[in-house]
């Protein structure tokens, strides 16, 4: 029996082998997301960017409604709770945020309303669904999430401590504490723009320690992610060989 709702679910999800409708839909959605980013590359809006905005928001709105409508298939159980649970999943939240920019077309222009345009970048997250490689990468991040969070917390603590120290020992160098945070971040990531450089011996000592810490701490997540990625690839290879 031709179940329209089930068929809609199969089409909106990432396509399997031989499903021409789903593949065409995936290509349309990927194109919508990429074309929807074009206005962010331009300084001013014109007639064509407004047309892109309206077209992409309509398509993304229809996609969101279709996904919510078929949420019971996605979540695996038929209940009102399935729909509510789906709306609060991360990808569904990103889907909703990516539709938000349409609001600024209907409201009076102001700087705060214009910030809504930045929500367009959330559309890039939707590309995860349509790329097998992105799915692998998101699986990798999910597996090393706990270790990554621990490293990120360590980095944040170090940045704040280094910023506090340099702010006390070099008070003339920084306009405010945010400048000190900026300097500490640029130092620990070993970027070192050079726009702010410590002048005192203590300040330079803090800079040297930041550089060494940066090499160690920034290498940690890279190694973790690489190891997890290789494991994921090997697992897929083994699965195909079996």
């Amino acid at each position: 029996m031709y179940d329209l709702k089930r068929r809609m679910y199969e089409v909106v999800e990432a396509s399997g082998v031989g499903d021409a409708s789903s593949k065409a839909y995936d290509i349309l959605m990927a194109t919508t997301i990429i074309v929807g980013m074009i206005p962010l590359t331009l300084r001013k809006d014109n007639y064509f960017t407004m047309a892109i905005e309206i077209a992409t928001c309509i398509i993304l709105f229809i996609d969101y409604c279709a996904r919510v409508y078929t949420a019971d298939y996605k979540m695996g159980y038929k209940s009102f709770k399935a729909y509510v649970a789906y709306i609060f999943t991360p990808l569904a939240i990103f889907d909703l945020l990516s539709i938000v920019p349409i609001i600024y077309l209907f409201l009076p222009v102001s700087s705060s309303i214009g910030l809504l345009k930045l929500f367009r970048v959330f559309r890039v997250v939707k590309l995860i669904r349509y790329s097998k490689t992105m799915v692998i990468i998101s699986n990798v991040f999910r597996k090393v999430k706990t270790q990554l969070v621990a490293v990120v917390i360590l980095i944040v603590i170090y940045i704040i401590v280094a910023a506090m120290l340099i702010f006390q020992f070099e008070p003339d160098l920084f306009r405010n504490f945010f400048d000190a945070i900026y300097w500490a971040t640029i130092s620990i990531t070993t970027i070192g723009y050079g726009d702010i450089s410590p002048q005192t011996d203590v300040g330079r000592l803090i800079a040297m320690i930041s550089a060494v810490m940066g090499v160690v701490v920034i290498a940690l997540p890279s190694g973790m992610i690489t190891a997890a990625y290789i494991n994921e690839i090997n697992k897929k290879k083994t699965k195909y060989e079996l």
């Binding site: 409708s21 065409a24 206005p39 001013k44 014109n46 064509f48 077209a55």
Partner: peptide, 28 residues
């Protein structure tokens, strides 16, 4: 129905690509 849906998706994809190119060129 499937053929019509695939055709609609392809037309919309092509239209979006053209619109995007025109917007990028005129905007720059």
């Amino acid at each position: 129905h499937s053929m019509m849906f695939v055709a609609l998706c392809r037309v919309l994809t092509f239209a979006l690509i053209v619109l995007g190119l025109i917007a990028f060129i005129t905007g720059n």
